[in-house]
Each structure stands twice: as C-alpha cells, then as structure tokens.
C-alpha cells in the first residue's frame, strides 16, 4: 500500500501536510496505524482506542507543525515523531482509565523517540474541539456561519462578507473577532478585551 504513495521524500510529505492535502493525511494515517496498533493491542487496547490515538496524535502533530514546535530536520522521519506523540497519548489514556497495568518496554515500537517537555505541554485539544463543536450551536446564525465558512470551509473574508451581507472585508474581520470572543466565553476560555 505504502509503496504506491506519491510521497517520495519527507519534505514533500511535510509540505503536503501543511497544505492540508488529503492524500498526505491518508498516508500518515496508514503509517501511524501500522506502527502503533501492535503496541496498543499488546497493552490491552482495542481498534477503537487505536483510532482515537491516531486521530488525536495527528491533530496534536499538526499543531506542532503549524506553529513550528516541530523543527524540520532532513534526516528525521516525520512518522517517528508522530509515533512518539501517539505513545504519549496512549499512556495518558491508560493513566486516565487506569487500564494499563504495566507497560512492558519490549512492546514499545522500536522507532519511537522520547518526547521533549515542549511536546507535551499543549492544552487538551480533544476537549477543546468538542467544546467548540458543542458551543458553536449556541452562537447566532451569522456568527456560526462566519466561523464555519472561515475556519471549516476556508473561505476568504471577502467571500464571507458577500455571503453574510456585510459591507466589506474589514467589517467581516471585526465581526469574526466579535464572534470568536463570544465563543471563547462560551467554552470558558480567558476573555479577549478590546
């Protein structure tokens, strides 16, 4: 399966992930699943657990990729880094559920590298994502549509202004800011003040 991948080198994969290309995510998904599933099953996990770990690891990895916490290194394989995130996620899940009795070091994927302090100090993106999804419903129609069009559908502010009947891009940007402030309050984050 992987042999037919168009990702002939790590840099291409890196760029394609940053651009949000579906083929790149599928490639990473396959790779991560293959490398981490044995480890998870060996420590009592299920397919659903593996799916959960894969999704959350890729989401965290994307944060590190976008905000330059992951420093590009020519010789490093991206998947190795994601495996280390996945291993950490699974350990966290185990701690939370007190399900993993003991992690035998021999079951660790051989290519997993230790994570640095910086890789683990992010907020719980899963919890926040669920809160965003739930609280979007509590926003007014225009706010909900504005956030949906910009962040989920990647439309430009000009398109959003035209769609929602706002005078221009500047007005739309201010409205977006106002909507995000409301959303932050709803999900219990520190308020933004003018």
């Amino acid at each position: 399966m992987l042999a037919s991948s168009p990702f002939t080198n790590q840099q291409l994969l890196y760029r394609s992930l940053l651009a949000g290309e579906d083929a790149a995510f599928e490639y990473l998904y396959r790779l991560l699943y293959q490398r981490i599933s044995g480890y998870i099953f060996a420590s009592g996990g299920t397919r659903d657990d593996t799916k959960h770990v894969v999704h959350e690891s890729i989401i965290t990895f994307l944060f590190n990729l976008h905000y330059e916490k992951y420093q590009w290194r020519e010789e490093a394989e991206l998947a190795t880094y994601v495996v280390s995130i996945a291993r950490h996620k699974w350990s966290e899940m185990g701690r939370q559920a007190t399900r993993i009795v003991s992690l035998d070091l021999t079951t660790l994927p051989p290519d997993a590298e230790p994570m640095s302090e910086n890789d683990t100090d992010e907020p719980d993106f899963e919890q926040r994502r669920l809160l965003v999804d739930q609280n979007m419903k509590l926003l007014g129609d225009k706010c909900r549509t504005c956030i949906d069009l910009f962040y989920f559908q990647k439309k430009s502010m000009q398109e959003i202004a035209a769609h929602l009947g706002w005078a221009n891009e500047d007005v739309a940007k201010k409205e977006k800011y106002r909507c995000l402030r409301k959303l932050r309050l709803l999900i219990g984050l520190r308020p933004w003040n003018d």
Binding site: H55, I58, I59, L62, F63, H66, Y67, E122, P123, F125, R128, R129, L131, V132, D133, I147, Y151, F152, Q153, L180, R184, L189
Partner: peptide, 13 residues
C-alpha cells in the same frame, strides 16, 4: 494559536 488550532481541529477531525 491554541484557540485557533481548536477551531482548525474540528474540520481536521
């Protein structure tokens, strides 16, 4: 950035 990523993570998931 963390707030932004929480939003971007919805379509990513």
């Amino acid at each position: 950035q963390q707030f932004r990523h929480s939003l971007d993570a919805v379509p990513l998931n």
